[in-house]
Amino acid sequence: MRIDCKHVWDYLSAYIDGDVDPDLRAQIDRHLETCEICSAVLDSTRNVVVLIADERVFELPAGFSKRLHERIDAMIDADSASG
């Protein structure tokens, strides 16, 4: 069976996560060998996934951790004082 581009797009996310069964994976792989459009869509989707996972994209606000642990210290002190 030959699958079309639309079908490949429906499974892109699962394909990237290795979450498609071997038969479907083989069909998608065969399609990708000859379809430049789907190859480019797959590559760009993967690239987006890699980029957003980079720690430089989402950084904690400056001082976040310090303020959080000061709050924890205050809480532990209060907890200890009350027994």
């Binding site: 797009w9 892109l12 430049e36 459009i37 480019a40 869509v41 590559d43 760009s44 989707t45 690239n47 890699v50 980029l51 980079d54 430089r56 994209v57």
Partner: peptide
Amino acid sequence: TPAILTSWREVPLQAL
């Protein structure tokens, strides 16, 4: 429908 583009295969991590 995804954005169709011909080739963009390298991840621009440097550009971050």
